[in-house]
Amino acid sequence: MGGHLNPMNVAEGAMNVPGVATFEHTIQETNVWLKELVELLHLENRHDAYSALRAVLHALRDRMTPAMAVHFGAQLPMLVRGLYYEGWHMAGKPTKDRTVQEFADHVAQQLPPRYPMDPLTVTKGVFRLLWQRLDPGESAKIIDHLPLPLRALWP
Rank of each mutant, 00 (worst) to 15 (best):
G3C: 11
L5F: 04
V10T: 04
A11Y: 00
A11G: 05
A11D: 01
M15S: 12
M15R: 14
M15I: 08
N16D: 13
G19R: 01
V20M: 05
V20P: 06
T22P: 02
H25I: 03
T26D: 04
Q28S: 05
E29M: 08
T30W: 00
T30L: 01
V32E: 02
V32T: 11
L34F: 03
L34K: 08
K35V: 11
E36I: 11
L37A: 01
L40S: 13
L41I: 06
L41M: 07
L41D: 08
H42Q: 09
E44S: 14
E44R: 11
E44W: 03
N45M: 09
R46T: 12
H47S: 15
Y50F: 10
S51D: 07
A52D: 12
R54T: 14
A55T: 13
L57T: 14
A59E: 12
L60H: 15
L60Q: 10
R61A: 01
R63C: 15
T65G: 09
T65E: 15
A67S: 08
M68P: 02
M68Y: 04
A69Q: 05
A69E: 07
H71Q: 06
G73M: 04
Q75W: 03
P77V: 15
V80Q: 03
L83E: 05
L83Q: 11
E86H: 15
E86I: 13
H89P: 06
P94W: 01
K96F: 05
K96C: 04
K96E: 13
D97V: 09
T99A: 03
T99Q: 05
V100F: 03
V100G: 00
Q101A: 05
E102P: 02
F103H: 06
A104Y: 00
A108V: 05
Q110A: 01
L111S: 01
P112D: 02
P112C: 01
R114F: 00
R114C: 01
R114P: 02
P116W: 03
D118T: 00
P119Y: 00
K124L: 06
K124F: 04
K124A: 07
G125T: 02
Q132H: 08
Q132C: 06
R133E: 06
D135E: 09
D135P: 10
A140W: 14
I143N: 14
I143C: 09
H145V: 11
L146F: 15
P147V: 14
L148W: 12
P149M: 11
L150N: 03
R151A: 14
W154A: 11
